[in-house]
């Protein structure tokens, strides 16, 4: 039970790291003071969250789709193209995240 919880935490650790450091890295770039600095910091955190959460969502969706697609392709290799389309559809989530990221950065 404990191992399962650790495994689950380990699975999300990379995404969490990206979210944390992306925010602080951009926050460091902002050389301003007072209110401007706060606004810039919050924008940077928002940009990190947009990208990071989009990536987590994509991962969550692609896990089961990928497993099912692998099963289908193992039986019928000619279905690879069709399965690839289903597999890539959740990538839109991370693309939306990227859009949010660039909007906030700009």
């Amino acid at each position: 039970m404990k191992n399962t919880a650790i495994q689950k935490a380990a699975k999300y650790a990379p995404a969490l790291t990206v979210m944390t450091f992306a925010g602080s890295a951009f926050a460091q770039e902002v050389a301003a003071t007072g209110a401007d600095a706060n606004a810039a910091g919050l924008k940077a955190i928002g940009a990190g969250l947009a990208l990071g959460l989009g990536a987590v969502g994509t991962g969550l969706a692609q896990g089961p789709i990928g497993a099912a697609a692998a099963g289908v392709v193992a039986e019928r290799p000619e279905k690879f193209g069709q399965m690839a389309i289903w597999f890539f559809i959740p990538e839109t989530l991370v693309i939306f995240g990227f859009v949010g990221f660039f909007l906030l950065r700009g």
Partner: peptide, 15 residues
Amino acid sequence: MNNPYGYINGRVRMM
């Protein structure tokens, strides 16, 4: 979270 039946059922459906 990771359900092994995703892969198995993909294959069974094709069967």
